[in-house]
Amino acid sequence: MLEDMRLFAAIVEQRSLNKAADRLNLSQPALSRRLSRLEAELEVDLFRRIGKRLELTPAGKLTYEFALDLRRFHGDYLQKLNAFKSTEAPVATIGASLTTLQTTLPELITAMTGKHPNLEIKAVTGKSHEIATLVKERKVDFGIVASSVVDDPGITSLPLFDDHLILVLPRKHILLERTHLEMTDLNGLPMILFAPGTWYRTLTDELFRTYKLKPDVRMEIDSFEAIIRLLSACRAGTLLPKSYLREQVLADNDLYLVRIRELEETNRTTSLIHGDPAWLAPSTRYLIEETTAYFARRTGPGIE
């Protein structure tokens, strides 16, 4: 039952039979057969097919809740079992790109340690390709990067959520006297940008080249928090990942978000990457499942 619930939860969270099969190292027909066998055993339909999409039935929603409970109980059991294996607290080492460290990791660590108080989480930072190398060399348990690593057979990449750039201005900025802003308004705009070397800055520079924009770059800083704090004082704007911009951050610094269609098209997928599943410890596999479920709950349902 535990394995069946694990497969079923993966289908729900990956929103696709094909993606779930890839993640589980199964063929899509084999996974479909396992799902059919589970439905036959439970004597209910877990999904209804609407075109190319799968939608959970009421019985499917109940079963998914049970699968989450079962996974949590199993994870708690594994964590407690570790106490008999070692006198040390369980440790998870996560590799993260610098951007991810600032935008995604704090909330994830808070959620994980809140649920598992004895869990100790360590973080190793680097560029996405460096994190991928650490994953392959088993120097970190898994990585979270703002990209997918699809061209390396030694890496499994699980999409977590999509992100895009957004224009941030001080609430009293002169541009906000206008009702509508376009990409051309960034030309010559005083801006504070993230320091070069990350996917986020690369994406920003590509955007400027594409639209032939030359903003007035006043500062380049490798801290989102520092950028946020300096915007009002410098009367400057910036482009930041939407995932970083919490309501409280904006309110505390008297900032305003400006929606520009072209910026919303600067999509980037943040992914969890791990190595050969055969080498994953049960506790690591559980944390990976917990992480993917955490982001699935944040982004909401919708299964293809």
Rank of each mutant, 00 (worst) to 15 (best):
L35Q: 09
F161V: 00
G143S: 11
V91N: 04
P159Q: 01
N267E: 05
A132G: 15
S283I: 15
S243L: 00
L119A: 11
L230M: 11
G75I: 01
T156G: 02
V12W: 08
K242D: 06
L2P: 09
S32A: 12
P106M: 02
T238V: 07
D254V: 08
G300V: 02
R246E: 10
G143C: 09
R72T: 15
R229I: 03
L101K: 07
E120G: 01
P159E: 02
R218S: 06
P29N: 07
A89K: 11
E43S: 14
H164C: 00
F142Q: 14
G237Y: 00
P90T: 02
A83F: 13
T270Y: 08
I273T: 15
D69F: 08
I109S: 11
E120K: 04
R48W: 01
S32V: 08
R246N: 07
I50L: 14
T284K: 15
Y256N: 04
K85P: 05
A21S: 14
R53K: 14
E137N: 05
I166L: 03
E55A: 10
D151Q: 06
I221L: 14
L35S: 12
R218H: 10
M1K: 05
W199A: 09
G275D: 11
T198S: 15
L245N: 02
P29Q: 12
R72D: 15
R285N: 15
G188A: 12
I155N: 07
R285F: 14
S283L: 15
D152H: 03
P301E: 02
H74Q: 01
E220T: 09
I131D: 05
Y294P: 10
H74T: 00
M183N: 03
I221C: 09
S86T: 12
V217E: 05
M219F: 13
G51W: 07
D141W: 00
R261W: 08
P159F: 04
Y64M: 01
L17K: 13
E264M: 03
R171Y: 08
Y244G: 04
L257M: 15
L169W: 02
N25W: 13
A278T: 15
G51D: 06
V150D: 07
E289R: 12
D163R: 00
L62W: 00
P90V: 02
L193D: 11
L165N: 00
R298D: 07
S36R: 14
T299M: 00
K214A: 15
E247A: 10
R48Y: 03
L193V: 06
L70R: 07
P153T: 00
A30L: 12
V140F: 03
T292C: 11
A236G: 10
